[in-house]
Amino acid sequence: MKELIEVIAKSLVDHPEEVSVMEETDNHTMVYKLHVATEDMGKIIGKQGRIAKALRTVVKAAAIRENVKVMVEIV
C-alpha cells in the first residue's frame, strides 16, 4: 500500500525525490502520511482536492483487496 501511494505521488510531482510515506496504525485503520515538497502540494491535492480524492479512491480499491481500512493524509 505504501509503495502504491509512493508510485502514484512520484508520477505526479516535479520533485519525486522528496516524496515520502509514513505508515501508522490507528485502531485497525492503516494511516498513511504522504509528504511532498511544498511546491508540489498543488500537484497532489488539485483543484478542490480532485487529485487527492482520486488518489484515495485508488488506494481504497487496493485496500479492499488486502482487507484493510486505510486513510491517506497529506502532510
Binding site: I8, S11, L12, R50, I51, K53, A54, L55, T57, V58
Partner: peptide
Amino acid sequence: IGKHGQTLDALQYLCNLA
C-alpha cells in the same frame, strides 16, 4: 472498476496527469 466506475475514473484521471 469500483462502484459505477468510480475507481476506473480515478485511475484514468491520475494516469492522464502522469
